[in-house]
Amino acid sequence: MDYTTILVRVENRVATVTINRPEVRNALARETYGEIASAMAELGARKDVGAIVITGAGKHFSAGGDIKRFKELIDTGVYLDPNQILRADAMATAIRECPKPVIAMINGTATGAGLSCALACDFRVVSPSSKLVMAFVNLGLSGDTGSIYNLMRLVGPERAELLMMTGEPCPGEECVRIGLASQLAEEGHLAEAAYALAAKLAAKSTDAHAAQKRILRQFFYDRLEEYYAKEALEIAWCARQPDFAEAVNAFLERRPPVYNREG
């Protein structure tokens, strides 16, 4: 299958899906969500694939949503629609329901929806310089692509609320300490560590992995559809509030946002 915003390769039973928009720090275009979902379905069905690595081209995993597109929505009065959010959620579902183990190899920064992509994976491998940022609140948004759901599963309510309500970066070593990441690689050896884990997983039974992931989906990720519906409504509401426009304009103008607290 031909893709425009991702690259896919398979070698030694390990597939690599690379978000390929390094000029914008791999911000997720509208096409990217569907392409990653399609890649998960394609690779999940291939007999020559035993594990999948998702990463970003260049220095960063993904900067998340395309803020320039947010600016266009604000200027034209076209708001985020819940159905658009549900299409983004489909990417997270495709990763979670892929029968093969999926590893996020987080080079540089994973922000917002980029972090959501990583959180939907089975494992996250980071280095000390990696930074994971639940940055939605910094744009006046609640979160999308299953971010809060998966974050709560990984680190529990208190740490999840701290990360999502402050929007502050979590460095690699801290991510591993709190359970947000699975493995800490030595600086400069991220790919080596991620592909060693992928090779170990790819050598195991794909049938057993598929069964294990079906059990996890049914009993531990069993309210995803209900969550997605609520998530889409809330972020669409946030996108219609003045704080969203102020946060986006402030980001593009490289200044702190000034929210109106009167009235």
Rank of each mutant, 00 (worst) to 15 (best):
M1V: 12
T5K: 11
I6L: 04
R9Y: 12
N12M: 08
N12E: 15
R13Q: 10
R21D: 06
Y33S: 01
Y33E: 01
A37T: 10
S38W: 10
M40D: 03
A41M: 10
L43R: 04
V53C: 02
F61T: 03
A63H: 08
G64T: 08
D66S: 09
Y79K: 03
I85G: 00
I85K: 04
T93V: 15
A104L: 06
M105C: 08
N107S: 14
T109I: 11
G112N: 07
G114H: 05
A120W: 03
F123N: 12
V125K: 00
S129C: 02
L132N: 04
V133L: 14
G140N: 01
D144C: 04
G146C: 08
G146N: 03
L151M: 08
G156N: 06
P157G: 11
E161R: 14
L162Q: 13
E168D: 14
G172E: 00
E174P: 03
V176K: 03
I178P: 01
I178H: 06
A199Y: 04
L201C: 02
T206Y: 11
Q212L: 13
R214P: 14
D222N: 15
D222H: 11
R223T: 15
Y228E: 07
A229Q: 15
I235P: 01
A236H: 02
F251V: 09
R254Y: 09
